[in-house]
Simulated scan of single mutants.
Amino acid sequence: MVDRVFVADAAWLGGDTLAGPTAVGMSGDTVGWVGPPAAAPPEVAQTRVDGILLPGLTDHHVHTALIDSAELLTNGITTLLDLGGVPDELWPLVERSRHDPRLPRIRAAGPFLTAPGGYPTRQAWAPPGIALEIDDPPSAAAAVESLLPYRPVTIKVALNSEAGPVIDDVTLRTVVRVAATNGLPVTAHTQGIGQTLRAYRAGVRILAHTPWTEALTDDLIDGLTRGTTMISTLDIHGWGAPTDGRDTALHNLRRFHAAGGRVRYGSDLGNGPLPLAVNAREIAALAEAGLTPIDVLHAITGAPLRPGAVGDLTAVPADPTTNILALSQAITVCKAGHPG
């Protein structure tokens, strides 16, 4: 049963080109029907949408304690992945986001897992409680298990040898093993020579950032393409100004993508002067790394608009399959079937 219908002159349904006039019917909080406007259920009123319909957009790397999440929902981003927050603040916000129509859907890793005194515990921006310190396999297992009741979507580890000590290989493998036993992937912040290789060898399957402190070897790039996801976060290096870190990250992402690696859009919101919207500089950097507009659409959207998909819709003013920067002008049409 369809209870809301949104109609636009065009929509992106997951292919290489736009579909023509399209109606999307919502059944509760999911997509219930997609088709031409003339075939929409006649008993349901239609809401006209100016622009081109897309699935809701996702930013795969944010820190919600440092931003206004509600503004992101206004600007087309319907889902956030928080990759490091203080548990007492973060988990209530995650729960609230499931029911509050003013907030994007927030999924989270919880606090960082790090070595005693490791990143980010010594950073000026890091509030108390943002990290759980682990120094051996038993403490690693206990830390992962302590997070399970909060339903994290991943476990985040910090492997930043430039900012302090890092956990050893045995402890890292324990994090990965206990997380995997409970159906969770591990996401790693890798910074410093050799840290991405360590993460890969331990079974980490999500990189929170495109590595920028070293050029990855061809063998490592090849290995990473077999099941590892790389979150972009290219614009944090200079915020529009050229830097060595940005150049290295672009070099790594370009090779990873060309080899068939899975890339996801992420901005690291909260880290410097980044817009509370889809970041046009991040999108342009993805294109510079070789992603086509269709690649970028897959990197920033969830499931295509089809029955059973989550009921989130975004609209953009121009064809994003030819002008991908149109994403930076996105607005939210609905979250969980409810108009934005």
Rank of each mutant, 00 (worst) to 15 (best):
R98Q: 13
G192L: 06
P137K: 04
A143M: 10
P165Q: 13
E145C: 11
V166P: 00
D135A: 06
D88Q: 14
T181H: 06
R226E: 14
D168W: 02
Q123R: 15
V94N: 13
T121Q: 03
R201D: 15
Q191E: 13
P138K: 10
V94C: 15
A163Y: 01
W212F: 15
V166H: 01
E89S: 09
P101N: 10
A179F: 10
A215Q: 15
H209W: 12
E145F: 05
W125F: 14
V144I: 07
I193A: 11
R107Q: 14
L197A: 15
P104L: 11
Q191C: 14
P127T: 08
H189S: 02
T171H: 00
L172W: 06
L81T: 03
P101S: 06
P120N: 07
D82V: 12
L103D: 01
A208E: 05
T225Q: 12
R107C: 10
T154R: 04
Y119R: 00
V175L: 03
A126T: 04
G118K: 00
P92D: 10
P104C: 09
A124I: 10
A202E: 03
P138F: 14
T210E: 12
G85H: 04
T228D: 05
G85C: 12
W91F: 12
D218Q: 08
S139F: 02
P104G: 03
T154A: 15
D88W: 08
G110N: 08
N160H: 01
D136T: 09
A215C: 15
S139V: 06
R201N: 15
I130S: 02
I221R: 02
A141Y: 06
D88H: 07
L184N: 07
L184D: 03
D168F: 03
G192I: 08
R98A: 15
P185T: 09
T196E: 12
Q123K: 14
I106S: 02
G192C: 10
P165A: 14
P104A: 13
G203M: 09
G110Y: 04
P137H: 12
H99G: 15
I106L: 12
W91E: 05
V94P: 01
T190F: 13
I155V: 11
T217N: 05
L90W: 03
G223W: 06
D136S: 08
V86E: 09
A124R: 10
T210I: 10
L83S: 04
L184M: 14
T196I: 08
T114H: 01
A115Y: 00
A143L: 13
V170C: 05
L220T: 03
D218C: 01
V166T: 08
A179D: 07
P101Q: 09
H209A: 14
L90F: 07
L148Q: 02
D88L: 14
V166Y: 01
A131M: 01
D136H: 09
W91D: 03
D82E: 10
A188K: 04
R177L: 14
P87C: 05
I193G: 01
I193W: 12
V204T: 05
P87A: 08
D222L: 05
V175R: 01
A163C: 12
E95K: 15
E133M: 01
P116D: 05
A109F: 12
P137L: 08
F112A: 11
S146Y: 13
A199L: 13
T181D: 09
L93E: 15
R205Y: 10
I155N: 02
G192D: 09
L224H: 04
A142N: 13
Q195A: 02
D100A: 11
L184S: 10
L148P: 04
A140L: 10
P92C: 05
